[in-house]
Write a protein that binds this DNA or RNA. Sequence first.
DNA 1: ATGCTTCGTTAGTTGACACTTACCGTTAGC
DNA 2: GCTAACGGTAAGTGTCAACTAACGAAGCAT
Lengths: 102, 102
Amino acid sequence: MDLALAALAVPRRRQILEILGDAELPVSAIAAQFDVTRPAISQHLGVLKAAGLVADRRVGTRRLYRARPEGLDEVRSWIDDLWRTSLARLKAEAEQEAKEQR
Amino acid sequence: MDLALAALAVPRRRQILEILGDAELPVSAIAAQFDVTRPAISQHLGVLKAAGLVADRRVGTRRLYRARPEGLDEVRSWIDDLWRTSLARLKAEAEQEAKEQR
DNA sequence: ATGCTTCGTTAGTTGACACTTACCGTTAGC
DNA sequence: GCTAACGGTAAGTGTCAACTAACGAAGCAT
């Protein structure tokens, strides 16, 4: 989870994920869409892979990357839990305040 | 969104959010649960507030902080979108591969 | 075998940020 | 008014990571 959220914190990595959500692509094709060098993208992909957000497969000299939606499960459930408990507490406080109003 | 995800990337800030999800607390009470100084927590709260993940209200000399679940909405929807599209693409590819198998 | 392409990796630099120490403003109570 | 408690802010430090440039490895083609 640490790795996943740290990976998602960098805007460029999020853009990469959005691109890989639609298509399976080699590193060069991704790098062509940004104004940074290919090694930079390669490093970002390494981070995303370590976080489980991306998977790769080799085909010839190229290496195709694709998004891995399962990697988002932990993050999704953590955020949802926090969202629910916070909302429940807010609701409880509102009711408490309403009771004190009377 | 940039701010929200950057805020969530730091483990200590997530811990603070978890604590504030259960209760409304002043800065000192939060700092007491960690082995860092109060200014550090104060700075983290400033980041969380700028990201819209936390709200504060003053009561006497103290300042009470609480989690703000609405701040998570953007992040939740972004992750859900990415999750859905990635899954859809994977499914489409699997069907494509099955078709080629025949 | 020789290029050529595609990609990963290393070293190095620069900028951001988490943290501490010290200081200042604000509010409540004697 | 004075004092103490609570909290935000400034300056400084150390560390981490995003990026570039340069090099090396692996597979395909003529």
